[in-house]
Design a protein around this nucleic acid. Structure first.
Lengths: 178, 178
DNA sequence: TCCTGCTTTCAAAACGTTCTGAACGCAAAG
DNA sequence: CTTTGCGTTCAGAACGTTTTGAAAGCAGGA
């Protein structure tokens, strides 16, 4: 293969590895995704293991992860007993998968926990000594800021996922600490 | 201290640890940030080590990281020789720090590398065999999609950092593969 | 200048994560 | 029914990262 093609292949694969790390996936997952993305033909586990010089076991596990995340899909090739994979090449689809399953959970969980904290603090109100009461008030301020942040994240997330045409930044920045 | 206050303290600190991991920092950094955030008074290294039950060495290193990221600042307490830290409580400030130093670099680097790849492919054009030429074309398509993604990220990033009042989502989604 | 008390540094250890390769399971073909 | 060629699993190895604790560094006060 021409040097330049090979070079582009290498740098794309390692770039995808980097991107994967950045998003909290394993580097190998990203590299596998990259390798599949740059192949016009679906690739078998052996192909992938050979191209990335890693064990078949690792390829098997990581490709199943990619599949679960909707970043690669199995492809049947007639007359073949091997499993073939191709990468999901629609970036928006991939992003949406990740955002909607992982990030959304994370944000919602955070908001729940923060809400519980606010409840606990308010509920404790009458039983507190004066100093404790002051501290509780301080906590409420800090937690309010955290809530504002996560509410912003939630709205931004839902907006992207909802595919809305316009993100109303004014409305978002109006979420205030109370 | 009242049970509820203690409970809120614990869950906030561990939540901050989780958030830190999510953003690619170490968990301890997040916990330290959380502990400082919930203290009306600045805390010394010893205070922090004791509250989080970790070694002083670790506290020292992690607090310096927090300082570098603009997430905590040193505070001089008169008559004291200890170092005291308080957390930066303006979330937007923190987010902006992280986005502008780390994420921006990442995105710009990716765009540079992708640009170089496109150049390499175009430059190789004439020297390629028919099959290679087909492959090069395929690469260009895939890389174009990646560029679109990173360009979107770049615009979104600069918009948030620029503090613009309105994020023009129409303009952003018009970035197309060419 | 010499203590004293605190911070910083760093090598070693602990820990968690990821990878490997052999063993196993399964299904299609003969 | 047996063989063959895959994919999957998992215990152990390899690896990288984080923590610790002791030693060194540093600054202020006597």
């Amino acid at each position: 293969m021409h040097d330049n093609l090979a070079a582009v292949n290498r740098s794309t694969i390692s770039g995808m590895g980097r991107l994967a790390r950045f998003f909290g996936f394993s580097e190998v997952m990203g590299r596998l995704y990259g390798a599949a993305l740059l192949s016009p033909e679906p690739l078998s586990l052996d192909d992938l293991a050979q191209r990335l010089q890693i064990s078949k076991g690792s390829v098997s596990m990581n490709m199943r992860s990619l599949e679960r995340w909707g970043m690669a899909t199995e492809v049947w090739v007639r007359g073949e007993r091997k499993k073939y994979y191709k990468a999901e090449s629609d970036m928006w689809q991939v992003i949406r998968n990740v955002l909607s399953s992982r990030e959304r959970r994370e944000v919602n969980l955070a908001l729940e926990v923060l809400g519980e904290s606010v409840e606990k603090l308010q509920q404790a109100g009458s039983e507190l000594s004066p100093e404790e009461r002051e501290l509780a008030h301080y906590y409420l301020e800090r937690i309010g800021e955290l809530q504002a942040f996560f509410q912003f994240a939630q709205i931004a997330l839902e907006t992207v996922l909802g595919g809305a045409e316009t993100l109303d930044f004014d409305a978002i920045t109006k979420i205030e600490i109370r």
